[in-house]
């Protein structure tokens, strides 16, 4: 199995993500944003960072990169598993592969902190991550408030696209714990073979870094890709 990690100009969590994957003993490949050849990889991660400096709107400029056209084609034709992290999430909503958009944090500040997340829905792409399960992961973003137009939030839940929510340490949903003003405390969204989250699993790969729950999340994703035959149809 080989996983590609895309580097856009301004990506800055690409190295961390490659190293996190390597620590899980999976083959990795760094993909430059101008390369449109995805033949060698079984899954793609769009890592965090500030592609194009987050200028204009975060993710908007990277969404126009050649590699994104290739990713879209592979998702539509072959259900390529794609995981977006932070800026990768922003790029995926800007390119229309995920619903909604990520607006500037409600309080207007960048926020770096530890956050507890709850799994809303199980997914065949993350076998073993059960609904209600809690994960402790860091966030670090200035534009992470998930937003969909009025009246469409219910659809996101009904279609099973709501994936992860910010909760308090005991797993309860409340407004105080919401770090950025996300609708329904949403921290992660999925649609088909594409999933994305604002928190950084690649920063939670060892207890000495504060948590190894990122290892659980990424391992589940890799396991899902390993079982690809079961859903790729």
């Amino acid at each position: 199995m080989r996983i590609g990690v895309v580097t856009f100009p301004g990506s800055n969590c690409d190295t961390d993500t490659l190293e996190a994957l390597e620590s899980l003993d999976v083959g990795v490949e760094s993909i430059w944003y101008q390369d449109a050849d995805l033949a060698q990889v079984d899954g793609v991660i769009l890592p965090g960072g500030f592609s194009y400096g987050d200028y204009l709107r975060s993710g908007a400029l990277a969404a126009k990169a050649p590699v994104m056209a290739a990713i879209r084609a592979q998702v539509e034709e072959g259900a390529l598993p794609v995981l977006g992290i932070c800026n990768g999430f922003q790029i995926l909503t800007e390119s229309g592969l995920l619903p909604g958009t990520l607006r500037p944090n409600r309080h207007g500040e960048f926020r770096c902190d530890w956050q507890t997340l709850r799994v809303v829905e199980a997914s065949p792409f993350f076998p073993g991550l059960m609904p209600g399960e809690l994960l402790r992961l860091p966030i670090a973003h200035g534009e992470g408030a998930f937003y969909v137009p009025p009246g469409t939030l219910a659809t996101v839940f009904q279609q099973g696209e709501a994936w992860l929510q910010y909760v308090d340490e005991s797993g309860l949903l409340n407004a105080v714990i919401n770090p950025n003003g996300s609708m329904a405390n949403l921290a992660g969204i999925k649609r088909g073979s594409v999933a994305a989250l604002m928190p950084h699993p690649e920063r939670a790969m060892a207890d000495y870094l504060g948590s190894s729950d990122g290892r659980r999340l990424l391992s589940a994703w890799l396991k899902g890709i390993g079982q690809e035959g079961s859903y790729a149809g």
Partner: peptide, 24 residues
């Protein structure tokens, strides 16, 4: 401190708010 990304590059064992930062 919470406005600074203190964890990127995944070396930060102790970040802001401690007497010294510790990097692995």
């Amino acid at each position: 401190y919470r406005q600074y990304d203190s964890m990127i590059q995944t070396r930060t064992v102790l970040g802001p708010g401690h007497d010294a930062a510790v990097l692995k």
